[in-house]
Design a protein around this nucleic acid. Sequence first.
DNA 1: CTTGAGCGT
Length: 86
Amino acid sequence: MSSNGYSVFVGNLPYRATEDDLGHYFSQAGNVNNVRIVYDRQTNRAKGFGFIEFSDEKSSQNAVNQLNGTEFQGRTLRVNLANQRQ
DNA sequence: CTTGAGCGT
């Protein structure tokens, strides 16, 4: 099944940012398995946050340590460990 | 042709 791996929550994203751009940016920290930006169902516009999926836990923790508080496309990213979906 | 903390189709 898809969505296997360790996810991190990413907030304060620029609305123009794409999942591909995020994937390339987070590749610095570890092996990115998948990238998901949350879009509004009514307007199809980005909500301004998303989730990055890594292949293992150390990559996700490394992403938080390296990329949290860094600037991405003019905005300061908020990176934290994501909660598991119920 | 908009917004700005947060945990997801």
